[in-house]
Design a protein around this nucleic acid. Structure first.
Length: 835
RNA sequence: GGGCGGUUAGCUCAGCUGGUCAGAGCGCCUCGCUUACACCGAGGAGGCCGGGGGUUCGAGCCCCUCACCGCCCACCA
């Protein structure tokens, strides 16, 4: 199809997206051996949210690299996944369809969710999962449409979902292997618990939020003498099991070894020394409760303190008092039993005040409190039976290996490695992978029931690997009849599902066909690139390295590209709650996808970027300019097979070759931004300088030989420029390519830096210098660029004059120069223009 | 509390191992409807490179220190 008279970007996205799909342009060629493959482990996006500009930003970076590698001749394995597993989908199902899961209800095949508001309808687990699936299907279609519009060169036949069969099987298989090797284990331990979601959460999902509270001073008694203890959680006083001071605290260390009595509940607790007790905090004397925070857990463990539980899973005080309380204590506790934590806190303070056990007024304080990152109530710590996966926190050997893997991995940018090492070095405990939720991958395990129908958690019955994926809630374990479910001597399913990261951590295994497609596995694993956000280094990246190390003993990929944030124009991180989120589709409509991609690619690896419509406009201008310049080049006429003969043409091609070398080097280093900058600069110099200079000659005004040389150079340069820009502007470049070439530019070979022998690239600068001087003179004289000038005098070193004179015919034509005057001399070249 | 980034023209940002490194684009101003493009072209003005010390013949670039901004980690008394 020849170039149209008035090229336009309108409709290019729809047209080319369709063509690429029909022709399978980005289909992975799985006949290619591993060295010819470039495989990418893309982040499975949470489909329950909405796609925002940050996703567009980072996915464009990956796509630019993918397109570069494809043009380098690699078969690019570039699947895309949706994370539809877990809590976010459940939450959205609850709000969109107004349902709530009640596992005790029976399945209702006729149930139809209504888009709704108001009260949440309780439904069975199976109905709930069906609602989640329905929601997920529509969400995923919407996401895919955005990605196609953006022009991601993913292979859409390779889509995977984290709740899908393949992912469930892989997650369960990996878990069973972990179980067999003793890396997964069941333990009764203090657990961070979200009282809203009614589930345990892992360390990686915590975040600190500054939270206001009241610090109270409580009066304990040690041998009849009052000792003040400060706390923001007075309601946990009945759970107090010890009082601590720092061993070097001169003021308090005499108390160590003695016994304190708690106010109100009158329980005897030991006074002990521990180095984590901070003399400068509060009164320097701290009470340990089971459990107020993670420090309590550490103290409880290290000092072998007893357990005194008062908090229930729904965030209330237990109905019955702890055993340790005496008669007086029980009386006091009765006023707190069953109350919410907030109520109990207020009540216990009143009681303390009445009893005269408060040493002063409450002081308002703000301190960091741990929240589940998706939750809105502070986490509590309760004791429960949960599944854990070893992660090196208690195993120096494993930890060192994980650190070592982090060093083997190439990070882009390199400094991101520090975050990984910080995280691995700071792990507090093994990874808690069980969740008390519904829409997730079930833990593939049952427990035998004893004679009285109680499960024996010490002897889990693992599923058979051949049966995966399995839902223990509906399938019977190997060797059992379904009829024995729930009956004494029979079995019971483990009711829990896995943490969503327990599935996501296996994306390389899932997409590369681990244990299910050995041929694919051979060609794609370990993968080349893991692109992801910095905020999930501690979760996705770390857990992926861990799972691969445990199962396969090595890194799952060679490179990790960590993207930065997109900030709004006020330098705030974008978030829905701030209302500053930019919707990508809207930008695509207004500026075109290439323009948005251009803006994204200007964001350097790992650096934050501002959402700047000005930059997007520049991208649009670049795309339009490309269409117009290309039209001109192609309209100038065929070049034949001739090699450029004019010195200035050869000089420009040398410049082009230099840019190709630089862009290639940048891309090899994952620095797509530098590749774009180099290319962009070349392109504008091509349009503004070279093209203007040789225009007359290209038209044939200066004879056929010069015309052939110019046309050949124009076409060679254009071909190279288009290919250099193809990773960034896939639509505009493909459009132009289609005007004069067969096949997709995205399957064309990346250009080689081949410069003509003996050409001198400095000539371009010298000639442009003179051209610019002529233009300046015309502008200052308020003349049209086409206006003729009289005499142009050039003074400077002889070598410079020679280089300028080598393009004299072009300069004379482009500048409309009547005569020239040359003055060889040392120093900086100078140009004087006379009317 | 520890750590990692950042602070360069009004705005968004380049400036590699210290010596044309004071740059680009946007915006602004002026000029120009030139047969690729007015969704354009040409030209111009704009900065004591966050502050303060130091090293050096020479420092946006190295060292120290302070101040802001962003983020990560941290045991919430």
């Amino acid at each position: 199809m020849p170039a149209p008279d008035r090229p336009t970007l309108d409709g290019v996205e729809q047209r080319w997206a369709r063509t690429w799909e029909e022709r399978g342009t980005y289909r992975f060629d799985r006949t290619r051996p591993r060295p010819e493959v470039f495989s990418i482990d893309t982040p499975p996006l949470t489909v329950s949210g909405s796609l925002h500009i940050g996703h567009v930003f980072s996915f464009t970076h990956t796509d630019a690299v993918a397109r570069y590698q494809r043009m380098r001749g690699r078969a690019v394995f570039y699947p895309v996944g949706w994370d539809d597993n877990g809590l976010p989908t459940e939450r959205r199902a609850q709000t969109v369809f107004g349902v709530r899961c009640d596992p005790s209800l029976p399945y209702d095949p006729a149930f139809e969710p209504v888009n709704g508001s108001g009260r949440q309808v309780p439904v069975s687990r199976r109905n709930f999962i069906e609602v989640c699936e329905r929601l997920r299907d529509t969400d995923e279609k919407a996401f895919e449409a955005v990605w196609r519009r953006l022009g991601l060169s993913v292979d859409w036949s390779l889509v995977y979902v984290t709740i899908g069969e393949r992912a469930r099987a892989a997650a369960q298989r990996a878990f069973l292997r972990n179980l067999r090797r003793g890396e997964a284990y069941l333990a009764e331990a203090p657990t961070l618990w979200d009282v809203s979601f009614q589930t345990a959460v892992a360390q990686a999902e915590l975040e600190d939020r500054p939270t206001r509270g009241l610090a109270q001073r409580l009066r304990f008694l040690v041998d009849g003498a009052p000792v003040e203890v400060e706390t923001t959680r007075p309601e946990l006083l009945p759970a107090c099991v010890a009082v601590l001071v720092h061993p070097d605290d001169a003021e308090h260390r005499h108390l160590v070894g003695r016994t304190a009595r708690t106010p109100l509940f009158d329980v005897e607790v030991p006074v002990m020394a521990h180095h984590l007790a901070r003399p400068e905090r509060g009164t320097g004397v701290v009470m340990v409760c089971t459990f107020g925070d993670l420090t309590d857990v550490a103290w409880w463990r290290e000092l072998s303190l007893p357990t005194r539980v008062v908090v229930t899973r729904d965030g209330r005080l237990t109905a019955t008092p702890p055993q340790a309380l005496g008669r007086a204590g029980r009386g006091a506790y009765a006023q707190l039993a069953g109350r919410s934590l907030d109520e109990a806190r207020r009540r216990v303070v009143e009681m303390l005040a009445e009893a005269g056990d408060l040493a002063g007024p409450a002081v308002a304080v703000e301190r960091p409190v741990k929240f589940y990152e998706q939750g809105d109530r502070p986490l509590e710590i309760i004791t429960g039976r949960q599944w854990y996966l070893r992660n090196g926190s208690h195993d120096e050997g494993l930890r060192d290996r994980l650190i070592e893997r982090g060093r083997e991995l190439s990070w882009h940018p390199d400094r991101m490695r520090v975050r990984y090492e910080n995280w691995v070095g700071g792990l507090q405990g093994d990874w808690l992978i069980s969740r008390q939720r519904f829409f997730g991958v079930p833990i593939p395990v049952w427990f035998p029931l004893d004679g009285s129908g109680r499960p024996d958690h010490g002897r889990p019955i693992p599923a058979g690997e051949a049966d995966l994926p399995v839902d223990p809630a509906t399938a019977a374990p190997p060797g059992y009849e379904e009829a024995r479910r729930g009956v004494p001597g029979g079995f019971a399913a483990d009711p829990d599902v896995m943490d969503t990261w327990a599935t996501s951590s296996l994306t390389p295994q899932i997409v590369c066909g681990w244990e299910s497609d050995p041929d694919l596995w051979e060609r794609t694993y370990p993968m080349d690139l893991r692109p992801q956000g910095q905020e999930i280094i501690r979760t996705w990246l770390f857990s992926s390295v861990l799972r691969a190390e445990l199962e396969l003993g090595g890194l799952p990929w060679r490179n990790a590209a960590i993207s930065g944030w997109v900030l709004d124009p006020d330098h705030k991180k974008m978030s829905k709650s701030k209302g500053n989120v930019v919707v990508p589709i809207d930008l695509f409509e207004r500026y075109g996808s290439d323009a948005v991609r251009y803006w994204a690619a200007k964001g350097r690896p790992g650096s934050d970027t501002t959402a700047d419509e000005g930059q997007i406009r520049v991208g649009r201008r670049l795309a339009i300019k490309l269409l117009n310049a290309s039209r001109f080049v192609l309209a100038a006429g065929e070049a034949g097979e001739g090699v450029p003969t004019e010195a200035v043409d050869q000089a420009f091609l040398t410049r082009v070759a230099g840019a190709v070398a630089e862009a290639t080097e940048a891309f090899e280093d994952y620095d797509y931004t530098r590749a774009l900058e180099v290319t962009e600069q070349l392109f504008w110099s091509f349009c503004d300088d070279y093209l203007e200079l040789v225009k007359s000659r290209a038209y044939g005004d200066l004879g056929p030989e010069g015309a052939a040389s110019a046309r050949s150079t124009l076409r060679r340069s254009l071909s190279t420029l288009l290919r250099l820009l193809a990773p960034f502007l896939p639509f505009a470049t493909e459009e132009v390519w289609s005007w004069w070439r067969e096949g997709s530019i995205h399957l064309a070979r990346w250009p080689e830096p081949d410069a003509p022998a003996g050409a001198d690239a400095r000539m371009v600068d010298d000639v442009v210098m003179v051209l610019a001087a002529i233009r300046r003179a015309k502008t200052e004289a308020r003349l049209s660029m086409r206006a003729p000038v009289g005499c142009v005098r050039v003074a400077g070193p002889a070598a410079v004059l020679d280089r300028v004179r080598a393009a004299l015919a072009d300069l004379t034509a482009a500048g409309g120069v009547a005569s020239w005057d040359w003055t060889p001399r040392g120093g900086e070249p100078a140009v004087e223009v006379r009317p």
